[in-house]
Amino acid sequence: MLKNFDANREEYRKKCFQLTAEKLRVSVNQDNFLVQAISEINEIDKLVNMLSRRLNEHAGLYLPELYGAINDNKTFARLISSKTKKELMSDLKLEKTIGAELEKKNVEPIVALAKQIVSLFDLRDKTEEYLESILVKYMPNVKHILGTMISAKLMLIAGSLKHLAIFPASTIQMLGAEVALFRHLKTGAKCPKYGFLITHPLVANAKPKDKGRYARMLAAKVSIAAKVDYFKGEFIGDKLLEQLEKKLK
């Protein structure tokens, strides 16, 4: 217990702030970078989808045929930002469009929006590269089994590699399905079989009957890999994945 607190309050305050600042400075680590990067990607995705929808509406005023021909937001934005209406029409082999003839001043904002969307896509790619570079060093085994995006999403919920290593395999299987899981616990509804792991190709391409089983096996391997990563073991990701693929065939 601290004594003589009232006598030297100011000194105590200074000491406390120093201690806390030091702990704050030390607390920044790889987990924080990972969580920030994946959250950034998620938010850019949301933003890009919204803006792309707006661009489709806006550009539809002068060339509605383009959206039907190209169903990819990225190339759509890139085409509109780089080419004029005439060039696009010749690409689509059109002689006439149902779109209106717009003045130059009305076309400019459309092109500006398209340029912004293209730059957002570039930013997303860069962030994903950065994310991958961290994952390869920090948790190579988990990354090898799950790929970049799924392992990052697991980290987002777990918060840190330490937590991910402590989790049992059954918890890892449920990560990303919190709503369904707690509904099951509270009301006795059906228990979910998988969370983020459903996007993994091994589980996604399985028959509906097998998906739960495959997710369970995958989660078991991920749990082993996370423990190896946390305690800085050797690289065994390829072995684990091989074992899994053999079993599933």
């Binding site: 305050r13 406390c16 702030f17 201690l19 806390t20 600042a21």
Partner: peptide, 15 residues
């Protein structure tokens, strides 16, 4: 919390 406590004389943050 740290930034808040700096401006209030009767508070102190502890981790």
């Amino acid at each position: 919390l740290y930034l808040l406590c700096q401006k209030r004389e009767n508070m102190v943050p502890i981790i």
